[in-house]
Amino acid sequence: MSKKVLTKEQRIRKEINRLRKLFKDMPVNTMNTVISLIENAAFMTITLEDLQVSINKNGIVSEYQNGENQWGTKKSPEVEIYNTMIKNHMGIMKQLTDLIPDQPKQEPKKEDDFIKILKRDING
């Protein structure tokens, strides 16, 4: 069986859907204002994954030629983009997580009658 390869757009859409599910309990008016944050976070997540593949494949250093006889190495452009984007991604994710509504406190579980009977027998 071959694994279906998704396009970048399909992967981004899938990530948008995943993030929207995480924020499904958010009030509708808040969700309408943060949808662009979710879309940008999804784009960055997928782009960062692609950059990681490229960095792993090509390394963190690239060679350059500056003039006829001037050669050297420098940080690869992918690493520079990755470093900038990961900071922006973390900022967006912090904004989104700060907007998640507080979960209602769950009521303590009530003991069923059988457990009460067992406890009575143990405690005398």
Rank of each mutant, 00 (worst) to 15 (best):
R18C: 03
Q95A: 09
L96R: 04
D98S: 06
P104Y: 00
L96F: 07
L48G: 01
M1V: 07
N66W: 02
Q106E: 15
S76L: 08
Q52H: 08
N40M: 14
P27A: 02
P104I: 06
M44W: 00
P108D: 09
L96V: 03
E107N: 10
K75Q: 15
M26L: 15
Q52C: 12
I81D: 03
N88A: 13
K3E: 15
K119N: 12
I92Y: 02
K14M: 11
R11V: 04
N88C: 07
E80F: 08
K74M: 11
I86V: 15
I86N: 01
K87Y: 00
E39I: 07
L22P: 02
I100M: 15
R11K: 13
K87H: 01
F23D: 00
K4G: 00
Q65D: 05
S54G: 03
D50I: 08
L22S: 11
L51W: 01
N29S: 09
E78I: 03
N17T: 10
D102Q: 12
F43M: 14
Q103V: 13
N83P: 02
F43Y: 12
N123C: 03
E9W: 02
R120I: 03
K105W: 00
K75H: 01
P101R: 11
L51Q: 02
K105Y: 00
K109L: 13
Y82G: 02
F114V: 06
E63Y: 09
Y64K: 09
K8I: 07
P77E: 12
M85E: 04
N69D: 15
V61I: 15
K119T: 05
M26S: 06
M31Y: 14
K75D: 10
K109D: 08
K8N: 06
P27Y: 11
N56Y: 10
P101V: 12
L6M: 11
I35F: 01
V28R: 10
M93Y: 05
I86L: 05
S76K: 07
T97D: 11
K119H: 06
T97H: 08
F114G: 00
Y82T: 01
S36H: 08
K94R: 11
E63G: 04
E49M: 06
G124E: 09
E107M: 11
P108L: 10
R18T: 09
K110H: 07
E15W: 00
P77Q: 11
N58E: 11
K119V: 03
I92L: 14
D102K: 07
E49P: 08
V79N: 01
F114P: 00
T33Q: 14
T30Q: 14
E49I: 05
G124W: 06
K8V: 08
K4F: 14
E78W: 00
S54T: 13
L118C: 05
I60H: 07
Q52E: 14
E68D: 10
I60Q: 10
D98P: 12
R120Q: 10
L48M: 09
E39M: 08
K110R: 12
R120Y: 03
K57T: 14
K119E: 05
V28C: 00
D102C: 03
N32K: 11
D98T: 05
P101G: 13
Q95Y: 01
L37G: 05
P108N: 08
V5M: 06
N83S: 10
I115W: 00
T30K: 15
Y82P: 01
Y64W: 14
V53L: 09
